[in-house]
């Protein structure tokens, strides 16, 4: 503890304290310009993260893969003697009648949500681009749906969409439209969760696209309006093309987030009626935790498929981001 030459050398008492402390987490020798010892310090500072990633990311993921290639029942789970069955559960998942439904629902849920979130988010970002009285406050208010706990938003939407007492049916009735069973009818359940999810995703799109708009030089618009370009032309000739890299990243991040969504759907419809609003993520959740009899092996198999899909979009995102940083 006393052997910290560099720090003690300053002879100030504060440095002495630091030197003593430095012994524990940062490795023994505070470095002076010497690269190897800086490396040791770097490793020491990164060590908590590396341990954390191995224990709390890599190991659970490894267990998840292990789950999917064994036949786990709840008893085998506790005793740890599940039988190895290879890719049988994956084959079961692909052969299951729920699989095509879940796949189509995942695609619909994701792409329709993203299309609306992006369009509305972009329209709002352009609207807020020119500052006006209260614009900052109102833009801040738009963050609310994003910050609320999902259980709060999802249960509020459930009540608003309630067949008998929901405000939405009540409004529709005053326009002469009869009662719609938003959450319980096979025709509307998926639409309902998509509507709620669009609402949830607008703030994220607005924030990112708005910050992208801030980077477009104002002189471009000035020049365009001097040349007599209308607002519409300015949007299609300047805003939209210059925003393309930011748009791509927003949409891809949105895809990755939306693929994973469980809470909203589970709270509003539990994926039902039947499998009408079941996505891959919800299916996985239901198999593992949603019924009295947990079936971890198929759930893990579905979950791993989901990881693969997310990673494909993820790598496209990383590629685009890197290319954007280079330019």
């Amino acid at each position: 503890m006393t052997s910290s030459p560099a720090a003690v050398g300053t002879a100030s008492s504060a440095a002495g304290v630091a030197a003593r402390r430095s012994a524990a987490p940062a490795g023994p020798r505070p470095p002076r310009r010497s690269t190897p010892s800086t490396q040791w310090a770097a490793v020491a500072f990164a060590a908590p993260l590396i341990v954390y990633l191995v224990v709390f990311y890599a190991y659970p993921l490894f267990r998840n893969i292990e789950l999917s290639v064994h036949d786990y029942t709840i008893r085998a789970f506790v005793q740890g003697d599940a039988e190895f069955i290879g890719f049988e559960k994956y084959a079961d998942v692909f052969a299951s009648s729920a699989f095509p439904t879940a796949l189509v629902n995942t695609a619909l849920f994701t792409f329709v949500s993203i299309a609306f979130q992006y369009t509305i988010g972009l329209a709002l970002a352009v609207f807020f681009q020119k500052s006006f009285r209260l614009s900052g406050v109102l833009r801040g208010m738009f963050l609310v749906p994003w910050l609320l706990p999902l259980i709060v938003s999802a249960s509020t939407w459930s009540w608003m969409l309630n067949s008998d007492s929901g405000i939405i049916n009540s409004v529709l009735q005053s326009f002469g439209i009869g009662q719609i069973n938003w959450l319980t009818s096979p025709d509307f359940a998926l639409t309902s969760v998509i509507i709620a999810n669009i609402w949830l995703g607008i703030p994220f799109n607005l924030v990112i696209l708005y910050s992208g708009l801030q980077n477009i030089p104002g002189e471009l618009y000035e020049a365009a309006s001097l040349d007599g370009a209308t607002g519409w032309q300015q949007f299609w000739r300047i805003t939209f093309p210059l925003l393309r890299p930011v748009s791509a990243i927003t949409i891809l991040l949105g895809l990755i987030y939306t693929l994973k969504v469980v809470d909203v759907i589970w709270i509003m419809t539990t994926g039902g009626p039947g499998n009408v609003s079941t996505t891959l993520a919800v299916w996985s959740y239901r198999e593992a935790f949603g019924t009295g009899q947990p079936a971890f092996s198929p759930a893990a198999a579905v979950g791993n498929l989901l990881i693969l899909i997310a990673l494909v979009f993820g790598f496209v995102y990383l590629y685009l981001q890197r290319r954007q940083e280079e330019s």
Binding site: Y57, R63, N64, L67, S284, A288, F289, I307, A310
Partner: peptide, 14 residues
């Protein structure tokens, strides 16, 4: 990018 439901299963098993 890893879905929370997958992490949840992994954590459950651990």
């Amino acid at each position: 990018m890893i879905p929370a439901v997958v992490m949840a299963m992994g954590f459950y098993a651990v």
